[in-house]
Design a protein around this nucleic acid. Structure first.
Lengths: 134, 134
DNA sequence: CTCTGTGCAAAAGATTTGCAAGGTG
DNA sequence: CACCTTGCAAATCTTTTGCACAGAG
């Protein structure tokens, strides 16, 4: 469903996602937007995030643990640090041909695929190495 | 944390996941097991699903919308029908080398990656084509 | 017997929704 | 001035947790 009006709330949500190069979750976006307008409600933020991602103005990224939002709308893969929760984009190219060949093999109509790599970022690896002084 | 005792509840949960070749979610497993023991509680089912997947006796599969559990423990990819929610295994081979090369590139220590293809299964495509007689 | 695991119910966390009031076109 | 969108609060939904009791070893 296309939004039909431009509200300042929707613009603030959109701008926040665009401005951030990390991958904020809904509540981080809410907290940021509330800095500009203390009256905004979580419900409005959720509604606008859904509206914007349905219209491909932002991307809804489903990460284990907590969904995130991404200013990049082209499909691409993500990398999650299991310890600190940080999410990065991955440089590997998106492989459209997989969707194609799997569609032919299975008879499904395939819209896309999403891939999440999981591990420990360099910072968290170091933090672990200096480790608990048990 | 390894389980230290064999309880009939844990066995029922494990057997249910093994017996089913679809990818049941926690509540489906709960409902099935409750057929055998009406006293079992959701909490016990969740606790055992977590315990079993920590010990790699089953696999916890994170699918958008609802987490599932899989009797296959080797890493592999999944295909989700966005309409009926059915999940299938995908025949594509798991590409360990991606974890490897991404680790070298990023400095992350990468445990694994998961991929979910999303689309419409043949049944749902047909259902849509005969379509709403608007 | 001991201590892990269970059942129950409450808690927690994320997201959605009903409704009256507000604001956009 | 119509009706989409908001704010608020309550509702949903899934999963986790505290605690006293049950049962596996």
């Amino acid at each position: 469903m296309k939004p039909q009006r431009n509200t300042k709330q929707r613009k603030m949500v959109f701008d926040t996602v665009q401005a951030r190069r990390d991958h904020p979750c809904a509540d981080e976006i809410y907290l940021h937007v509330r800095g500009q307008d203390p009256k905004i409600s979580r419900g409005t933020v959720y509604r606008n995030l859904n509206l914007l991602s349905e219209n491909a103005e932002i991307q809804h990224v489903r990460i284990p643990g907590l969904d995130r939002f991404d200013w990049r709308v082209e499909p691409h893969y993500h990398l999650l640090c299991l310890q600190c929760g940080k999410v990065c984009d991955v440089s590997l190219p998106y492989r459209t041909e997989l969707d194609q060949s799997l569609a032919e093999e299975t008879g499904y109509e395939i819209a896309q695929h999403s891939t999440v790599f999981e591990g420990l970022c360099p910072d968290c690896r170091n933090a672990n190495d200096s480790g608990p002084t048990k």
